[in-house]
Design a binder for these strands. Structure first.
Length: 675
DNA sequence: GATCCTCGAGTTCC
DNA sequence: CTCGAGGATC
């Protein structure tokens, strides 16, 4: 036995790996493969000096680490615009074709060529090869900075440790790590036998496996990889097209999914979508749609980017997954304002990646409109892929005993009458703050982040204090002492002390926040701030009659009446007097809106998605500080949409309306001019 | 009076 | 995120 046998074994194993993972056409049995592998292990054990890092035996995984390091991507990893309908795809094709016709890159009347591929439901990673050797692997993270998962990725057999052929310099391959359904089911079975965590779906299992601190765990799980793009490439091949680049990546021995082809025009794209939709179930792994990319690389460069999303690519997602389940019961919840919301209790059902057990039914009319009855089998989906929604009952499966929902006449929490005013969709508990549910939520609202912002005072704590009769009104919050808090559930002396300090800080809220905290019907954050600015002081607000109130921008007769009525209520006056008196609360006047000359004056922004460094609140604050406005929905009047990761329908809407889109860097640039 | 634009309120799951 | 509804605008 010699070193040459070792090399021969390695070559054979690598060839088998390639046929199995890349070509999807194995030529040996698993047993035969195992025999070769064991022989190699034996030889290497006998001759440790023959072992190289690229040997297939070195995929077992090194020692665990305490945390994953960070990696900055040399070329940012992109996100994609989304489409859910044929119309949106047609609009995308038109934008691309118009853009390319205008520059003469596409002959008049000719259709644009696109590479179509699967949108795999896994985790995006970037593999960095230097002189053909895998040196680093990183998750996508926020697109700029990801996590270093090199040690784990080295254990994935589908990913070559060395590229085929002579590749000099840096080649970064980007693609998706995923778990095939079969491997997922086997893993869960094993996890169950070992009484370990069961994964809800292959995506979570892949993510959990890849982000392990102990690479040996990753090594024990079967992950797959398919490349769909590239980052830094020092020596670009001659390819002029995206499809050509993918062929080149495949020729390096990296798996590229076979379900890809070049199509022309919107019709070609939609045909691919339909075809994949039909093949979806048989794929053996999860996809959440397909992706279209303008094939010509020079055309891609011309089209460029909006925000972080390329104008030359589009993810066409499958409609939200639907499932059917049984509607066990319809219960009602009481909201902060007394709104009675019927909620469907469902037999747990797995849909769109999570198990759904509850879904809102909004109100009585909605239930009637959908004609859902208790005992029905219903169709459930996750609206906008997040919030579960009951779509409709399955008429054929309605049991004889199916019962209509009857709105209770008394509040389930306090027993007060429930009434529904003429012309309103919502029924309400009339108990007001007598109702424990309303009192709890009113208090939780008042201490919440957007109102008095008392850190450490969450729903759970408010619940406990209300139940013990320690909190009846907002004024009571300011009388809480550290020693009485310390005894409560999940409250040590340290947390209690922190909370008391947080309460003390809340003695000087801005007037707008204080007004918002009161929970006056129709008076939200914006209206409260407008009121604070208009009157300048709490005394001014309290002295206003309905006419004076209507002078506040965005306040009309309905809001004015609600506010004046609320502030005249003896009970509410009482609480305010206590706050200002014994509690020592001193509202500070709202800052004046930025001067008319401020850079962003007159500009309206809409924020969507997750920004790389700022939270959405921080971004909003900075926009307001520069004189801009932040709104919740996109319209023709919107000046800019600031889009981050996973931007959803608002980005789509912005593109439809032709509203300018910024990324965080673009926003900061705009803001920068103001300093 | 109709239409568009915002704001407020409620909600699910991990 | 979505719906309902109040307010502004034409």
């Amino acid at each position: 036995m010699s070193q040459s046998r070792v090399q021969q074994l390695r070559a054979e194993i690598l060839a088998h790996d390639h046929r199995y993972y890349v070509e999807d056409a194995p030529t040996v049995s698993d047993a035969e493969y195992d025999r070769l592998f064991r022989e190699l292990v034996e030889l290497e054990t006998a001759h440790p000096d023959w072992v190289t890092p690229e040997s297939p035996t070195q995929r077992v995984g090194g020692a665990p680490v305490s945390a994953l390091g960070e990696v900055r991507h040399s070329v940012p990893m992109l996100s994609l615009g989304n489409a859910f309908s044929a119309e949106e795809v047609q609009a995308f094709d038109k934008r691309v074709a118009d853009g390319l016709h205008a520059s003469g890159a596409l002959a008049g009347g000719a259709e644009a060529a696109y590479l179509c591929e699967l949108k795999l439901d896994g985790l995006a990673i970037s593999l960095r090869y230097e002189d053909g050797r895998l040196v680093q692997a990183a998750t996508r993270g926020n697109g700029q900075v990801g996590e270093d998962v090199t040690a784990n990725v080295r254990t994935i057999k589908a990913i070559p440790l060395t590229l085929r052929g002579d590749v000099a310099g840096v080649v970064e391959v980007r693609g998706e790590v995923l778990m095939f359904r079969q491997d997922f089911e086997r893993l869960n079975q094993e996890q169950g036998e070992r009484e370990q965590k069961i994964f809800v779906n292959p995506r979570n299992a892949a993510a959990g496996s890849l982000r392990q601190l102990d690479p040996r765990i990753t090594a024990a799980r079967t992950l797959r990889f398919f490349a769909y793009g590239w980052g830094q490439v020092d020596h670009m091949p001659a390819a002029q097209t995206h499809s050509g680049m993918l062929d080149w990546i495949a020729s390096l021995g990296v798996p590229v999914n076979a379900h890809r082809r070049v199509a022309h025009g919107a019709d070609g794209l939609l045909a691919f979508y339909t075809e994949i939709g039909e093949a979806r179930r048989g794929l053996g792994y999860d996809i959440d749609g397909v992706v279209y990319k303008v094939d010509s690389l020079s055309a891609q460069r011309q089209l460029g980017f909006v925000s972080r999303a390329p104008r030359w690519a589009l993810a066409h997602k499958f409609a939200a997954e639907e499932a059917t389940t049984e509607l066990l019961d319809i219960e009602v919840q009481v909201g902060r304002t007394g709104a009675i919301t019927p909620v469907a209790r469902l037999k747990p059902v797995f849909v769109g990646g999570v198990t759904v057990t509850n879904a809102t039914l909004h109100n009585e009319d909605e239930i009637r409109r959908k004609d859902v009855r208790i005992g029905d089998t219903v169709v459930v989906r996750r609206a906008g892929d997040v919030i579960p929604e009951v779509v409709a009952p399955v008429a054929e499966l309605r049991p004889a005993h199916a019962a209509l929902f009857v709105m209770p006449t008394q509040c389930p929490v306090c027993g007060s009458a429930i009434e529904r005013l003429e012309g309103e969709a919502i029924a309400r508990c009339t108990g007001g703050l007598v109702c424990a549910a309303q009192r709890k939520q009113a208090l939780a609202h008042a201490v919440g982040r957007r109102a008095l912002d008392i850190d450490g005072m969450g729903d759970k704590l408010v619940d406990q204090l209300v139940e013990r009769g320690r909190l009846t009104s907002l004024a009571d919050v300011y009388t809480l002492q550290a020693d009485e808090l310390a005894g409560l559930d999940r409250m040590g002396p340290k947390s209690a002390q922190n909370l008391v300090e947080a309460i003390d800080k809340a003695r000087r809220p801005s007037l707008g926040r204080l007004l918002f905290a009161l929970g006056i019907r129709h008076v939200g954050e914006t209206t409260a701030r407008d009121m604070a600015r208009h009157f300048g002081s709490l005394e001014g607000v309290l002295a206003a009659d309905e006419d004076a109130m209507m002078g506040v921008p965005s306040v009309g007769p309905v809001v004015a009446k609600a506010a004046v009525h609320f502030l005249a209520e003896p009970h509410n006056r009482d609480v305010l007097d206590r706050l200002l008196g014994e509690c020592g609360v001193e509202p500070v006047p709202e800052e004046a809106p930025a001067a008319a000359g401020a850079v962003l004056a007159g500009k309206t922004f809409v924020l969507t998605g997750t920004l790389p460094t700022l939270t959405r609140d921080e971004a909003a604050q900075r926009i307001v500080a520069a004189g801009g406005k932040v709104s919740g929905s996109v319209s023709r009047k919107t000046s800019y949409v600031v889009a981050g990761e996973e931007a959803g329908s608002k980005l789509t809407k912005a593109q439809e309306l032709g509203v300018s889109v910024l990324d965080e860097a673009g926003l900061i640039e705009l803001l920068g001019d103001s300093d």
